[in-house]
Amino acid sequence: MSALTFTLKQAIQQRVDVSALTPDNLAGKSLSDIAAIPLDSGRLKLRVDSLFDISGDNAEEIVFNNASGKLDYIGSKMKSGRITVNGGAGSYLGFQMRKGEIVLNGNADAYTASGMAGGLLHVHGNVGDFLAAAIPGDRKGMKGGIVLITGNAGERAGDQMRRGIILIEGNVGSYCASRMLAGTIGVLGSVGDYVGYGMRRGTLLLTQPPKLHATLQDCGTHTLPFLSLMFKSFSNLPSKFAAINKNRVQRFAGDIANDGKGEILVFK
């Protein structure tokens, strides 16, 4: 058995919705069935084999090669298995993912991990805006699971995030953790303006002092035992966070404009 591999034949202009190509959906399907699956692209419906060379037979292990930022909804709603993406991913990578693992070697576009409820999403690269955020109309962003980003994230990362862990090794844009409801976001790099705007609950862990707006208020410097617990739980993750073992932080709480039980912890 070898990984079921989709190799993009050539660069494409319109985005393609590849949500159908998940381990759960493809389990038990023949290559000819898979080849004929229609994918939405613009207003067209394109057969899988018109876009991809298909090889391999193990639908539990899916690989996208030569992938690009035009492939949206990779791993959407997946409940099992593993998807490896080489090249890049479009928007909605791991959308409403429940279980399993996605590894992206490359950059992803907006709404990565939106609505994700479980599993592991590992991006070796950057992601766009609205990482782990809710799509318009929804009231909750990411609801569980672990997201690891080795690069940078765009604006509004973690907007309305409800649960789960996001560890970002690079920098994050403005309004990081806006309206965050719960969960944990760690950032090794810098964060932009208005971090934690409208934050209700949850934890944002920073290694560099951020620029704070007035309704995030200083609660002093503390040694928090739960951080040891947290870092111990990260110790097996393939992330720079695995090596951290510090629990002395300055604690800022807020956003008191909006309930205000969230915290921004900055390493001392």
């Binding site: 208005y194 705007y197 707006h213 007035a214 309704t215 200083d218 008191i256 404009a257 205000g260």
Partner: peptide
């Protein structure tokens, strides 16, 4: 203009009766 988010947040915190620490925004 770009400080409006902060000013509004402060006004909302004050109206909701939260202890607001900054002396100016």
């Amino acid at each position: 203009l770009d400080r409006i988010p902060e000013v509004l947040a402060a006004l909302r915190a004050i109206i909701s009766g939260k202890p607001f620490l900054a002396t100016e925004v």
